[in-house]
C-alpha cells in the first residue's frame, strides 16, 4: 500500500510536468500570464481543453489495456488491437451520420460499439481448451479489419471537408477538443479507473489462469462482465472524443510492469496516471515535430507502439 502511494506520487509529478510542458510549448509559446490576449486565448481556449482531453484519453486507454491484459492473460491485449477502439469508432460514425450532432448519441453508440466488439473478439478467440495468444491477436485483426471496412464505406457518405477531419479523427486526433468532450472523458476515466482497480486483486489470479482464479475464490463470470463493461465504457468515451489513439494500452502497462512488477493493484490504477502523461507528451510531440503543421497523436503513439508489439509477440 505504501509502495503504491509512493509510485502514485512519482507518476503524478511526471503527469504535472507533462501537462505544464504541453500547455506552455507548441508551435507558439503560450502562457496564462501573458499580456497578449492572443497567447492567453491559445492557452485557455485551445491548449487547456486539448491537453486535459489528452490526459483523460490516455488514462482511459491505458487503464482499459492493463485490465484487459490481465483478464485475457495476454500482454498483447489492447483496446486498439482487439478491435474495441474500432467498434467504438464505428458507433461514433453511425451516430454522426444517423443522429447528426445529438450530444449523447456519439458516446452512447461508441460504448455500444466497443462492448459489441469486445464480446465478438472474446467469443471468436475462446475455445474449450482456453485462449492462446495467436488466436486472440488474429480475432482482433479480423474484427478490426471488418470494422475498418464498414467505417470506410460510411466515409463515402461524407463531403470532402468532413472527410479530411474524419480521417484525422480516425487516426486519433486531439485538435478538435471541446470542453464537453473533456467533461465526459474525465467522468468515464475516473469511474472506470475506480471500477477496474476494484477488480485488480481478482485480476492477479485471473492473470495466472481461469482455473486458478475459480479455485481460489474469484467469481470469474462477474469479473469478466465488470472488466469488459468498464473498459467498453471508457474506450467508448475516449474514442468518441478523440478517435482511435492506438497502442497506449499496450505501451503504458508494459512499461509499468517492467518498472514495478505485475501486481495489478499497482499496474491498473497507475496505468491511468502514466497513460495520461504519455498521451499528453505524445500530443506535444505531434504538435511540435513538423510545426506549424500537426501530426495526429495516434500516428505518434503507433510509431512507438508497433515496434513494442513486435518485440512482445516475439518474446511470447
Amino acid at each position: 500500500m505504501k509502495r503504491a502511494a509512493k509510485i502514485a506520487m512519482i507518476l503524478i509529478a511526471v503527469l504535472a510536468a507533462a501537462v505544464a510542458a504541453a500547455l506552455l510549448f507548441g508551435a507558439e509559446w503560450a502562457s496564462p500570464f501573458s499580456q497578449d490576449p492572443g497567447r492567453q486565448a491559445i492557452f485557455f481556449d485551445i491548449r487547456l481543453p486539448r491537453v486535459l482531453l489528452g490526459a483523460c484519453v490516455g488514462a482511459s486507454l491505458a487503464v482499459a489495456g492493463a485490465a484487459l491484459q490481465a483478464l485475457l492473460r495476454n500482454p498483447l491485449a489492447e483496446p486498439y488491437l482487439l478491435g474495441v477502439s474500432n467498434g467504438a469508432a464505428l458507433g461514433t460514425m453511425l451516430a454522426f451520420v444517423v443522429f447528426g450532432n445529438y450530444v449523447f448519441a456519439r458516446p452512447l453508440l461508441a460504448f455500444t460499439g466497443a462492448a459489441a466488439a469486445s464480446v465478438l473478439v472474446y467469443s471468436l478467440a475462446k475455445t474449450r481448451a482456453g485462449m492462446n495468444v495467436e488466436r486472440l491477436v488474429l480475432s482482433g485483426v479480423i474484427v478490426t479489419t471488418f470494422l475498418s471496412s464498414v467505417i470506410i464505406m460510411l466515409t463515402t457518405l461524407l463531403d470532402a471537408a468532413r472527410l479530411r477531419s474524419f480521417t484525422f479523427w480516425l487516426l486519433g486526433d486531439l485538435s478538435q477538443a471541446t470542453w464537453s468532450g473533456v467533461y465526459l472523458s474525465f467522468g468515464a476515466a475516473v469511474i472506470a479507473t475506480i471500477i477496474l482497480s476494484s477488480q485488480s486483486k481478482a485480476l492477479n489470479l485471473m492473470m495466472l489462469g481461469e482455473r486458478d482464479a475459480v479455485d481460489f475464490g474469484v467469481e470469474t463470470g462477474r469479473v469478466r462482465l465488470v472488466v469488459f463493461g468498464a473498459s467498453s465504457l471508457v474506450v467508448g468515451a475516449a474514442v468518441a472524443a478523440s478517435g482511435s489513439v492506438g497502442y497506449v494500452g499496450l505501451i503504458v502497462p508494459h512499461l509499468l510492469r517492467l518498472a514495478f512488477g505485475s501486481d495489478n493493484r499497482i499496474v491498473v490504477p497507475m496505468s491511468a496516471i502514466a497513460g495520461a502523461a504519455f498521451v499528453v507528451l505524445a500530443d506535444l510531440a505531434a504538435r511540435v515535430a513538423i510545426a506549424p503543421r500537426e501530426l495526429p497523436v495516434g500516428a505518434v503513439t503507433a510509431l512507438l507502439g508497433a515496434p513494442l508489439f513486435i518485440y512482445l509477440l516475439r518474446k511470447n
Binding site: R73, K201, L208, G209, V218
Partner: peptide, 27 residues
C-alpha cells in the same frame, strides 16, 4: 492444479499471496 506458465513476471511471494484472495476485500 497442474501448473501452467504465466506470460507475466510474477514473483514467488506474489504468487503465494494470491492464495489469500478469499480472505480480503477485492480492493
Amino acid at each position: 492444479a497442474q501448473e501452467t506458465e504465466s506470460r507475466f513476471p510474477v514473483s514467488v511471494r506474489e504468487f503465494v499471496l494470491t492464495g489469500r484472495f478469499a480472505y480480503g476485500s477485492s480492493f
